[in-house]
């Protein structure tokens, strides 16, 4: 069951540096929201505040509130937040000491699933959703690092969705991948949005245009414009958005 996320007056710091200056956003359920903007605009920081990953860095601090449905995420245990909100990172990061199977099964085991049959089933289902099953079904016990970069990233997606979160955050999930793998990840996002609320950070405006229902343009830690993707790319209201999407800076 996917739920909307609402963000109010969210501020984030690295040490004394304010990287997010009061962000307010309503991210609709079962849709893909893209976050675009130049490097250092706070887009990664923003999604890392949604699953409370930002605060794990030394010296980092967050203020404001984030609700998933009706639940205030900053009033519950961050571990529980991250079980509800999965994340896929910029670089593929499968657990290097574990097999393909165990990379996905670990989250399930820690969540209390120990039955072998159930585990196998869940692993297969997640890998199929991540469009990786066909490529790895005969080599599940091999190390995850034996996969190519694109496969590793799809494995990370499978790992994130195996524990059945409600939201999937993707921090430039294709930036380290080749064009073919990028396309596969984008197709995957398209398929997954029925089941999950997806927030995807991207550098690549074509990618945002291809996959996102809504797009937010971030600049210097603020949301400049947030609207449906077509509007942002064809008829932006803010001059800065227009300058950015037409390639005048960024």
């Amino acid at each position: 069951m996917s739920q909307p996320i609402s963000v109010h007056n969210l501020k984030a710091w690295y040490g004394t540096q304010l990287t997010l200056k009061s962000v307010d956003m309503e991210l609709p359920a079962s849709q893909v929201t893209a976050i675009i903007g130049p490097s250092g605009c706070g887009k990664s920081t923003f999604i890392r505040c949604l699953n409370r990953l930002h605060e794990t860095l030394p010296g980092a601090r967050v203020e404001g509130d984030v609700h998933l449905g009706t639940q205030d995420l900053y009033k519950v245990d961050p571990v529980d937040v991250r079980r509800m909100i999965g994340m896929v990172f910029q670089k593929p990061n499968p657990f290097p000491t574990l097999s393909i199977f165990d990379n996905i099964a670990l989250g399930l085991r820690l969540g209390g699933v120990h039955n072998r049959g159930q585990l196998r089933e869940a692993v297969e289902r997640s890998l199929q959703m991540a469009a990786l099953w066909g490529e790895v079904k005969d080599r599940l016990s091999e190390p995850a690092t034996s996969l190519s970069g694109g496969q590793q990233q799809r494995l990370c997606i499978a790992r994130a969705i195996a524990v059945q979160p409600e939201v999937l955050l993707m921090d430039e999930p294709a930036s380290a991948l080749d064009p073919v793998s990028t396309l596969r990840v984008e197709e995957l996002v398209e398929q997954l949005k029925d089941t999950y609320t997806i927030v995807i950070v991207t550098h690549n405006m074509q990618q945002a245009a291809r996959v996102a229902d809504e797009t937010a343009f971030f600049l210097n830690g603020e949301v400049v414009e947030f609207a449906d993707t077509t509007t942002i790319f064809t008829n932006p209201t803010d001059k800065r958005t227009e300058d950015y999407i037409t390639g005048r800076f960024g």
Partner: peptide, 14 residues
């Protein structure tokens, strides 16, 4: 690498 540890934290590990 912090990338691997964050992978675990992001998955909801303690």
């Amino acid at each position: 690498p912090v990338l691997y540890r964050e992978g675990g934290i992001g998955l909801g590990m303690t």
